[in-house]
Amino acid sequence: MINLLKHEFFKFFRSLGFKLLIIIVSGISLFFVGLSLLMLSGIEMPEGYSYDMQGYSAIVNAFGDFSNVSIVIAVIISMIVVAEFQSSTIKNTVMYNQSRLKIYIAKYLLQLVAITIAVTAYLLAYIILFNAYSGWGEVFSFSSLWNNYIKIYLMGMLLCYAISAFINFFAYLTKSTALLIVIIIAITFIFSILYTIQNDLPPLLEGFSKILFSLVVMRYYSDSSIINLVYYFISVVLLFFPFFLGGYMLFNKQEIK
């Protein structure tokens, strides 16, 4: 397993894909910062009021745009799996003394590290860019570190890991970049519609709508209520386990070309 991990990490950190990933997430940060600032500049505030978009607000704002970004990052990272199938190099790992479970876990562990790096890069770029423009303000304090920063960061990260397991399932299923992107766009579209009409959903689907709500909103309103927090964890678990196990079951039975 150690050899397998060394092998996976060596490939990843030396690949062009890794450099591109960092550039892409920084670019996304720049785009969203620009967008936020553009929107704020168009709002005229009543005298005596001002928008506080410094420090803590920046990370909240960053996660506000994070729903889409987390999917983009997870899709890019799931390309690690797709690329191995497309270039047939997956044969090497399967042939040399490796059980498919170990290979599957090693690839997922690499993805977790890659996601952590990508999300952190995204957030750092966002916060630095945002505050470089708006000023650092006085909102940062160590006492608010857990509530305002770490908790939100960890919850966002946890969701991203789950989304990655979800997207991975489709990566193993399709083994094709184009097909994977089409499927993910379709699923995102369906979920967006469901989220928009959640109040009109039948009572039976009330739980489902709460899960959707918690996935989209919970990360940056995590203090609002315990029940929402519970929904958040349920939704993460529901997103992770079936698709993580499903992905393994697919891979374990797959013909490697």
Binding site: H7, R14, S15, S87, S88, T89, M95, K257
Partner: peptide, 25 residues
């Protein structure tokens, strides 16, 4: 084994390919 086409890491050099395989093995 070499089955069908050679499974090489196309975006790496020959040396890096050998390093990758050495790590795997």
């Amino acid at each position: 084994a070499i089955i069908e086409s050679p499974a090489l890491y196309k975006n790496f050099t020959a040396r890096e390919n050998l390093q990758i395989m050495a790590l795997l093995k």
